[in-house]
Amino acid sequence: MSNNLSKEFNIRDYLREDLMPHFLCPGCGHGIALRALLQAVHELEISKDQLAIVSGIGCSGRVGAYIDANTFHVTHGRPLAFATGLALARPDLEVVVITGDGDSLAIGGNHLIHACRRNLKMTCMMLNNEVYGMTGGQASPTTSQTRYTTTSPKGSIEPVFDACKLAEAAGAGFVGREVTLQMPSLKNLLKKCLQYDGFSFLEVISDCTEIFGRKNQLGTSPEMILNQKSSMRPDSYGNIVDEPFRPNFMKTGVLALNERPEYSATYRQHVARQLKSKEKK
């Protein structure tokens, strides 16, 4: 199968256009992340036939279906578990997991930390929009304190997860973060993820404009995305109770890079050794 790769990146080569118009709300950051991913795939000349996208449930989970590749839309929180089986059974595939803050930090949190620990080659792109968008805007593990959601009507009081610190502490070989405003940088980070020989985790700060933004009066979509860089994006990861809207101090870029043995290769070497010692006997 030819992939009809034209030299210049044309997103249409990578989308299932039959499915358009897509279901994302106007201003949603997920589309930007999708474009960045596809451009990274294009620039690395990864074959669409070899690309396997595994996604969970939620707005993030639906993004995968628009990609013209082998796409698996699985159960809530479990894309990393499915992807672990797929990547181990088929090391020839390029496995990318698209997940969300609820999908991978709440219901699927266990799979995230163990995927980080194992270091099986795959890219995990977590779209963090601070909210359960698809179910109507409930609080997630990354909803900043004081923010309004349909399940924190008087403002959230729960501390939040720093997904990147979590991933790094759990042993992920590659950890990065970027905002959707910085599209070229996001694309370059995704390229690094795809090239990394192990488990790479990328948190993408993406805006839920229609539900979360509106509820918290964060402004129009363009205002929200610009605020990712300037003053209004809350530092989700500090103690912000006293000073809820501090300028954004979140670190972006490559946050951790460790050379660790890739799990699939380690497993296969382990098996080869066993077979060899059996032959000797």
Partner: peptide, 20 residues
């Protein structure tokens, strides 16, 4: 592979099976 929990084990075998 020994997975992190029962749910993951079920997910992993489905991933492997979808891989053929």
């Amino acid at each position: 592979i020994q997975m992190e929990d029962e749910i993951a084990s079920m997910g992993a075998i489905l991933g492997a099976s979808m891989g053929g």
